[in-house]
Design a protein around this nucleic acid. Structure first.
Lengths: 235, 235
DNA sequence: TACCGATGTATCCATGTCGAAACAGCGACG
DNA sequence: CGTCGCTGTTTCGACATGGATACATCGGTA
């Protein structure tokens, strides 16, 4: 089982989806709506309908010319190009977020200050961002929560070289023991036991791995920003 | 125009969507499929169909009992509960990611080492994670890219107190000038000009804001991990 | 001026989705 | 043993989606 995402842009209640992006790219490549719809195996009439719907919400996207030696043709506008690249960025970001390891830490809210709160966990106190669960409320003081920490938000330090607690931004600091090192091509995922049910994982480069000299059993300090966490109400 | 996400879990080609979660929650609350479908205004036959489809992919989700004084009833299994909370976490994470400010920095790849690369930008060299664009390839050396940096990944430091360049993980460091401070209830979004077309933004707490004494015109050092960035091919 | 291949526009139909409705089966309880 | 309210199953039809098709229109070019 794995996570997947459907990213889309919204304007005036009309969604610009991956399928729309595919259509626009095909038009750009084919130079015509007719060629694009044939390439995609979709009907031309529907493609034109869809373009019209999109243009009502997003402004001119396809410059359509009729007549001429070649019968006419279509090109994308600047707006369309920027929509395409914006959606591509969103997809890249979200796909990355969805596929990255996350660590779930159960705990209980002990303090709350607006969107931020302090959560008591097995590893100690944690500052986290409190967010409403879909169809629910923002967690209150004393309510049980699950804090999720994405591995790309976690930074590792040597215990001797750990930053001052109150040094920069609001960071959570946890000392722990490396339990696993999963080396990719250039990016390494290290898992660290910080005495929570789930281990914390951190993404780092091979370079950092070598400098920190990490191996199972090593002691490290893991830190992450409160604003990169999400605490939602547990059932 | 804004971004929206449709998070879902996948297993055996069957997606567990927000609508499915709504159905399961309604069953949990009503104690029966009949009550749940009425509460949601959906037909009972379809709800049962959907449950069957989901169970083929995810295992038992709803314990259905027939007969008895009350005619029977349905309860969620542990599997269903864990699916619900997993989807809720995913939604919270992705919704946060989609809505957070991102800074787009155009540049050109100058080095590539697997998933990581060095990108030359207006602000200087940047280490970023190279990812394939939807329906495209991973950027090569010399190709133009757009690097996106989410504001929750950015940490700010006082110029005098900036961390050593090679200190911990592979971090990008940029000195810049604060151009805006957008204070929320407890979380502040600071925008920093680092001589790129888009300004970089960073999320920090009020506390950090005060300690760093940030205001428009202040000099700061912004840093972020390479593994938290995404560089995709520009058109 | 005829041709060509595109854009416009309309209608028809296959398909899939989903609610409505009806009915059988079940089983604890009074 | 009958009642009750759920589960289980089927059939029907409304509705939206989207392909297939046909035909008019446009406007450079030969």
């Amino acid at each position: 089982m794995d996570a997947s995402v459907d990213a889309q842009l919204q304007s005036d209640g009309v969604a610009f989806t991956a399928a729309d992006a595919e259509l626009l790219r095909a038009i750009r490549d084919a130079g015509s709506v007719a060629g694009a719809s044939e390439a995609l195996g979709r009907s031309r009439a529907r493609a034109l309908d869809r373009i019209e719907t999109l243009e009502e919400a997003y402004g001119p996207l396809v410059e359509r010319r009729r007549g001429g030696a070649t019968g006419g043709g279509s090109d994308l506008t600047e707006t369309a190009a920027s929509l395409l690249s914006r959606l591509a960025r969103l997809q890249a970001t979200l796909a990355g977020t969805a596929s990255v390891e996350e660590c779930v830490i159960p705990g209980r809210v002990t303090e709350r200050d607006g969107e931020l709160g302090v959560v008591a966990t097995d590893a100690g106190d944690l500052r986290a961002r409190l967010v409403a669960r879909d169809g629910g409320d923002v967690p209150e003081v004393d309510s049980p929560v699950q804090v999720s920490v994405r591995s790309d938000a976690v930074t590792l330090h040597a215990p001797t070289d750990a930053p001052a607690a109150g040094g920069t931004s609001a960071r959570n600091r946890f000392e722990g023991t490396v339990v696993g090192v999963d080396a990719g091509e250039t990016i390494v995922c290290a898992t660290i036991d910080i005495r929570t049910p789930d281990s914390l994982s951190a993404l780092l480069t091979h370079e950092s791995l070598d400098r920190l000299d990490l191996r199972p059993g090593s002691r490290v300090v893991a830190s992450f920003k409160a604003t990169a966490t999400r605490a939602i109400a547990a059932d």
